[in-house]
């Protein structure tokens, strides 16, 4: 089955090139905000600018390569293959991936207030449920014991103090033991 040009890897490379060019312009504008240093042979903004120029050069090369490929594409060309999509309506996997990202964002937000074990319990449990683990015993045990075990290793053996939030009493309990 022949793939539409707009669904090919060459076209996704073209889109990526435009996104990257926009990023490079934004990054370049940000370098204008970097303060200059007196009597410096190399200004603090010089190195980032060199990197942006380097990135831009290869982005333009990618853009040109994509345009050439789109202009004269052969069916057996690797870039004529179907590209991955980010459309949540066409691919349920993308929706699930975005769900995991959203859960991770909530994880970061609540990490300090709820504590590592509680947020990890929810993150671990919800993801396991999303990807098909329906056995409640397994689901609860893994989601609880893995973060608890990791906390114990980090807290007692490696002496890394991890926020415990709601379960602060566990820390006091372990300290007493």
């Amino acid at each position: 089955m022949e793939v539409k040009k707009t669904q090919t890897k060459a076209f996704s490379n073209l889109i990526a090139s435009f996104v990257l060019i926009a990023f490079e312009i934004w990054a370049w504008l940000q370098t204008n905000a970097i303060k200059t240093a007196k009597n410096a042979a190399v200004q603090p903004s010089t190195f980032p600018r060199i990197m942006i120029i380097g990135m831009a050069v290869f982005t333009v090369i990618l853009l040109i390569q994509s345009l050439i490929k789109l202009g004269s594409m052969k069916p057996d060309d690797p870039l004529a293959e179907k590209a991955e999509t980010l459309n949540i309506f066409k691919d349920r996997g993308v929706l699930a991936a975005l769900g995991v990202i959203a859960l991770c964002a909530l994880y970061v937000y609540f990490f300090k207030s709820l504590g590592y074990v509680v947020v990890s319990f929810f993150l671990c449990g919800i993801i396991m449920w999303i990807i098909g683990l329906r056995n409640p015993v397994k689901l609860i045990l893994i989601s609880l014991l893995v973060p608890l075990g990791m906390w114990l290793i980090f807290y007692k053996m490696l002496q890394v103090n991890i926020p415990m939030g709601w379960l602060q009493f566990l820390k006091d309990l372990v300290d007493k033991i």
Binding site: L123, C124, G125, I127, I131, L133, I142, V146, M150, F154
Partner: peptide, 20 residues
Amino acid sequence: LEKRMLYPIILVVSLLGAFS
């Protein structure tokens, strides 16, 4: 371990590693 257990475990262990 089955992937449906392995992935969430990797995630919570990794995020703790990043914090530590």
